[in-house]
């Protein structure tokens, strides 16, 4: 007999209520769909007294948004009450300060974009506008306003932009202002980082010295 495909959602009864085991291999949306099907279809099974539910995610962590979706599904059955959500040996929620947030648009004078995690902005920051992030800030466009990376004190953050003309830069607690006049030779992508408590600016092709473990090199070995 061939291998049986493991069910995405396994439900077990325990002394304390129901245990939902969610498969951690398949995409979470697939799991949610299967869960919705099971909760909606087999109507008669679920009707009954209030039952506590534990959800096991296995080796998967979920975002806050995914958690909301999950909880909304269980709202279909009023008597099923989620008591706990667990992942194996780690917090079930993904750390929001990790990962990259992508935004697009122009941040104009008087506007502020604030974000948790690293920020990738596909657009411009105009003078008088500001972007703030708990992580690093990468701008595919012109940075002409204020950028503050590591607003909660992370001093390993960088600020990078294709057109680097900020009025002011802040990384963690350090502040630096722009030179009074930009030289024409200073065109091109740049990044700012913290060096001994002070903000330093360098050309993008020198970023490898700051992040040696992220440097990409073409492998000499043919495979």
């Amino acid at each position: 007999m061939g291998k049986m495909l493991k069910s995405g959602v396994t439900i077990k009864g325990t002394r304390n209520g129901l245990l939902f085991l969610l498969d951690d291999v398949r995409p979470f949306t697939v799991i949610l769909n299967e869960l919705r099907y099971k909760l909606e279809q087999s109507a008669n099974i679920w009707d009954g007294p209030d039952t506590a539910v534990s959800i096991r995610l296995g080796q998967r962590q979920i975002t806050r948004q995914e958690e909301t979706e999950l909880r909304q599904l269980f709202a279909i059955r009023r008597n099923l009450i989620i008591r706990e959500i667990e992942a194996e040996g780690m917090p079930y929620l993904l750390d929001e300060n990790r990962g990259i947030q992508i935004k697009t648009g122009t941040i104009r004078s008087g506007q502020m974009l604030e974000q948790r995690g690293d920020l990738l902005l596909l657009g411009d920051v105009n003078p008088g506008g500001s972007v703030r992030s708990t992580g690093s800030i990468y701008i595919l466009g012109a940075l002409r306003g204020l950028a503050h990376a590591g607003i909660e004190g992370d001093d390993s953050c960088i600020i990078a932009a294709s057109i680097f003309r900020p009025t002011q830069l802040r990384i963690a607690d350090a502040i630096s202002r722009a030179p009074d006049k930009w030289e024409e030779s200073e065109l091109g992508s740049k990044f700012a980082y913290l060096l001994d408590g002070q903000i330093a600016v360098d050309k993008m092709n020198h970023l490898g010295q700051l992040w040696p473990d992220k440097v990409w090199k073409e492998s000499r070995l043919r495979q």
């Binding site: 104009r108 004078s109 008087g110 506007q111 105009n126 003078p127 008088g128 506008g129």
Partner: peptide, 12 residues
């Protein structure tokens, strides 16, 4: 130009 930028932001 600065003020125009602000106004565009408000109009949006």
């Amino acid at each position: 130009v600065r003020d125009a930028d602000r106004v565009i932001g408000l109009l949006e």
